[in-house]
Amino acid sequence: MKAILFVLLILSCNVISTAQSIDKFSIDSGGANLTNGNVSIIYTIGEVNVAERTSATIKISEGFLSRFIKIKINPKVFLQGAAINTETNGLMNDDLRDLGLLPIASPFGDGKTVDVSVFNLGGTSSLGAFEDDIVDWVWLEFRDEMDVSNIIKGTSALLQRDGDVVALDGVSDITLGVVPKNYYIVLKHRNHLGVMSANPVAVTETGTAINFTSSTTATYGTNAQIALSNGDLALWAGDTNSNGEIRFSGPGNDANIIKDEILNDPLNGFNSATYTSVGYLLIDVDMSGGGRFSGSDNDSNIIKDNVLQHPENGFNSPTFTINTTIPEGN
């Protein structure tokens, strides 16, 4: 069934009177949300803004629109965990996809879902390039160029093995209803520390590329990413509770989170510290499909190495904390 498109256009008009006139570009910055069943309307008054809500058959857009505006963006990022012992140089491993552990619903809480066929080899056709296989979900965010804490829009997206962040069909560039202008660009992952551009980036309708894997792309804060052995940059792995910190020892450390989840796994009948918990897990730092606290290739050692070798940990202290470089958002 074709979607029905409603455009809610709130314009002022010139009021002829002896007292005053109201221009359409300056009324108020108000607005509201209205919901009735499965139809939601967002509207604003007096500001150039674009938003949209979609149901199975209805799409509603608002703002001072002369046409339907969508920006296009093509970010690129690597995850350290998925690049450990990589099968192919320059590509991340896709073990979670290969093991059938990737969820069709985003872990970031915005309600986005995909068809399971997107996780086929090379996308829905199963005939695509293997470098386009999906590694995991990521979160893409646009922040105000005048206030880095102000989140303008965020959305779930998918990450390919070659680092391309793509739309929910697993292959296309991301298009969003965002006013074309300058934004700080943020990319986050559920158990890695995120990254943000050092400066606002011009986002356009024709397309914008930003490559966080390259050292030529300036990022916000110091040592926002880790350098891989081939020179590419990647997000720091090891944030096992998604709190924006990576700790190996001390209160609330990530290694203990791994240990506790392993020991409390209902399938770990002998409470063995060398047990491997299987699933789509925050404690699976290397994204292999299994979380390990001790033994060979355990996830705790990745956290330890990151902490001890961090450029700002001058004393190689095991209690050093790697903090996210992304300002808190609102």
Rank of each mutant, 00 (worst) to 15 (best):
G154L: 04
D144C: 02
L233G: 12
T208W: 13
A167R: 00
V118G: 03
D239E: 09
W236P: 07
L121M: 04
G250Q: 12
W236D: 01
A129V: 01
A167M: 00
D136Q: 09
Q225A: 08
N253T: 04
D110M: 08
V118F: 07
V195M: 08
K188E: 15
D115S: 09
S149R: 07
L193T: 03
G221V: 03
R143N: 14
F248D: 04
T175L: 00
E141N: 03
S197R: 11
G177T: 08
T208Y: 10
E141Q: 12
I134R: 09
A234S: 08
N182E: 14
D239G: 06
N241R: 06
I210W: 05
G163Q: 13
I246P: 12
N253R: 10
N211R: 08
N253W: 10
T113E: 11
N199W: 04
A237K: 12
D239L: 10
I185F: 13
E145S: 12
V171P: 00
G252N: 14
R143I: 02
V148L: 01
S149L: 03
L233S: 05
D239N: 12
T213V: 14
D169R: 02
Y220C: 07
D144G: 07
L187V: 15
V138Y: 12
D254R: 01
R161P: 13
F142L: 13
V201P: 10
D232C: 09
G250N: 06
G238D: 10
H192P: 11
I210A: 05
N120P: 05
K181F: 01
D169M: 02
T155R: 10
G122D: 05
S229I: 11
G231T: 12
I246W: 11
T213G: 04
G250A: 04
D133N: 15
A218M: 13
L159R: 13
V178N: 09
G109Y: 10
G122C: 03
V114W: 11
K181I: 02
S156G: 14
V179M: 15
T124L: 03
D169Q: 04
L233C: 08
V138C: 15
D132L: 00
F108Y: 15
F119A: 01
L159Y: 00
D162P: 12
N150C: 04
K153A: 00
G154N: 09
E205K: 12
V179G: 00
I210L: 14
S215K: 11
D232Y: 15
A227C: 02
V166A: 05
S126C: 02
D133S: 06
S197N: 08
V178R: 04
T175H: 00
T124N: 09
R190K: 14
A157C: 13
L235H: 09
V118S: 01
I134E: 05
F130W: 01
T113D: 02
I185S: 05
D110E: 09
G122S: 06
T206W: 11
I152N: 03
G163Y: 06
N182V: 05
V135L: 10
T204C: 06
V114P: 12
Y184T: 15
I246T: 10
T124W: 04
V186Q: 14
F212C: 00
